[in-house]
Nucleic acid binder design. Sequence first.
DNA 1: AAATTGCTCAACCGCACGCTA
DNA 2: CTAGCGTGCGGTTGAGCAATT
Length: 308
Amino acid sequence: MEVEGRECNSAIQSEEETMELRRGPWTVEEDMTLMNFIAKHGEGRWNSLARCAGLKRTGKSCRLRWLNYLRPDVRRGNITPEEQLLILELHCRWGNRWSKIAQHLPGRTDNEIKNYWRTRVQKHAKQLQCDVNSKQFKDTMRYLWIPRLVERIQATSTPTATGSSPTTSTTTYHHHPNNISMSSGQLVPPPPPPATSIGGDYGGVQPENSSTGASSDSFGTQVSPVSDLTDYYNYPVNNNHNQDYYQVNQVSYPDSLTSPSGYFNHGLDFQAMEQNNNQWFDAGGDTSDNLWNVEDIWFLQQQLNNNI
DNA sequence: AAATTGCTCAACCGCACGCTA
DNA sequence: CTAGCGTGCGGTTGAGCAATT
């Protein structure tokens, strides 16, 4: 990537070197400045980019803002069951390699995945009274949550939706401030922010499927409640069921892995957990309209097996 | 209605690595 | 060889909001 006019003149540089750097939330003006500059000159060389754009920010901060928020292909909205499945599976393989995991979730940032993991998955590990990196928890994911996710995905997939793939599915990209029109190379500022947006800035992105009861933040980032991990506590703890499931669906996991039998003998009260997490159980029928079909899942599985 | 608690996520920080002069 | 710089990554923090008391 090339940044035109990479270096500013020395007068401007020396002036900006004395400027105090801004920190904290980005303003609309800063976002527009950064987006317009990148639209004209491209991204990269973030330190000089920050200087030349006149931003009182570090290059790091500019890069982060662009990659995690302003980039046009940043995907916002539901963490779909498919994405949750991918996150679980890839984390089983790679651990906290968030950027590597994010590479397999188009439009998702490592930061978003990391936050998802910390806020959702780790919380349930805590509820299970085990470490998130423990074999117990990992096996619970493999044998309970992942199968359940796949089952849900299959149950909600539409038979007519053939031929799509994770990268070509009818994924919806929720709008955010960078979803702007370009005319003659100039970026047009986004619509005025809703009054309820965070910090007085913009960001009040409305989820497209807000009628599903999914929880969402003011930026529109959501986790499909029906497919969140807590839901799996509702799943009958039945080893045979899970084993049968794997046989039927030919999902292969190492034979050496033990069954989940005995994993729930630590005083875990599923009913209590349901009550504690009924924000997810209450959401009944959300089956995001962008689910992959069964073939997609198999394509996904094969991709994982082939590429990893 | 007010106070408290918990949750989410954007942003920051420190470190490591690669490249170049 | 090495110092300096740019970049990327994973961990952490704290503001804002929602839910609960």
